[in-house]
């Protein structure tokens, strides 16, 4: 038992930082779900392409020896480009694969999303190759900041950054949704697409905006995760997507705070699972928690129960 207690503080930190990553991915899922009530299976792939964009930006700057630039500026550039590309990609996907199906049965929408996901994954495989791309982060984060030691606990600078960004995004998003006109229109659309349309909300535009923001968040997340784990490859979307949407559902899909909570719960449960069981079972533990939560609270930890209209 002592053996476990000894590593517990570190594992808690591991869990929280991993949770930050999951939360970041989950927010994009949750936003789209909140408006359209659909699981955007392709979000994982949009996320992956955002990561590739960030990598290309860094790669080009690196090749041009432009890394003498301020590290913050470089990261900002990567994030902006990744957000733009994945945002536009998200809008495109919505236009091509989802909008024609808005009144179709749910299962068709889901399969269309799956089709997009298969396409994008293999598109990248074809044109970018199967090789993993590495982010040269050493040039961005000074040696002294890379690892921070606090008592028995070690964590890296990038991990702290991910959590900080995560909270900033949350704050920004909730302000936007609560107090801007656009946010109000988004909430109205989330409540009832048709009624919102009657009230003069340009629903198509709102949905487009939501897809743009949700996908752009995915892109930003991907760059941050890329900087943190130093890699991106064409298959990154599947694992990230699975975890991201597990987190979103766990927290109560459609609820942004829920997505964050879900992310942290998932990250912590994985870290603790590794502590007490063979590491291979960490996903088993995570999924068992998901199932248990959904059986006891089918609407997730923070989601609202919406009774069916009769």
């Amino acid at each position: 038992m002592d053996m476990f207690l000894e590593q517990l503080p570190q594992q808690l930190v591991n869990g929280i930082t991993l949770g930050g990553v999951y939360a970041l991915i989950a927010i994009g899922y949750s936003m789209v779900y909140g408006i359209l009530s659909m699981l955007n299976f392709a979000h994982g792939e949009v996320y992956m392409i955002g990561g590739f964009t960030g990598w290309w930006v860094l790669h080009l700057l690196y090749r041009e020896n432009a890394l003498a630039m301020n590290a913050v500026a470089v990261i900002a550039l990567m994030v902006v480009f990744a957000m733009a590309v994945s945002g536009i990609l998200g809008v495109l996907i919505e236009r091509v694969a989802y909008r024609p199906l808005r009144h179709a049965p749910r299962i068709n929408l889901l399969l269309s999303a799956l089709g997009v996901s298969i396409f994008l994954q293999n598109f990248v495989l074809t044109f970018q190759g199967a090789k993993v791309r590495s982010f040269p982060v050493a040039a961005l984060v000074p040696e002294s900041l890379r690892v921070i030691q606090l008592g028995p606990v070690v964590f890296s600078f990038m991990r702290v950054l991910v959590i900080v960004v995560c909270f900033c995004l949350m704050a920004g998003l909730s302000i936007m949704i609560k107090s801007t006109k656009l946010g109000k229109a988004m909430r109205a659309t989330a409540q009832d697409v048709e009624t919102a349309a009657f009230m003069g909300v340009d629903v198509d535009r709102i949905i487009m905006v939501v897809f743009f923001i949700g996908s752009a968040l995915g892109g930003a997340a991907s760059v941050l995760v890329g900087l943190l784990f130093t890699q991106v490859d064409y298959y990154a979307g599947f694992a990230a997507g699975l975890k991201g949407f597990t987190a979103a559902v766990l927290g109560g899909i459609g609820n942004l705070y829920g997505a964050m909570l879900g992310g942290f719960v998932l990250g912590l449960s994985e870290a603790l699972a590794v502590t007490f069981f063979p590491a291979a079972y960490k996903d088993v533990v995570a999924f068992v928690i998901l199932i248990a939560v959904l059986i006891l609270r089918p609407w997730g930890l923070m989601g609202e129960k919406s009774p069916e209209k009769v």
Binding site: L101, A104, L111, G115, I118
Partner: peptide, 15 residues
């Protein structure tokens, strides 16, 4: 390319 065409077919079929 095979998998890519699957993806496209799936989307087109649904739409």
């Amino acid at each position: 390319y095979r998998m890519m065409s699957y993806g496209v077919i799936l989307v087109m079929l649904m739409v």
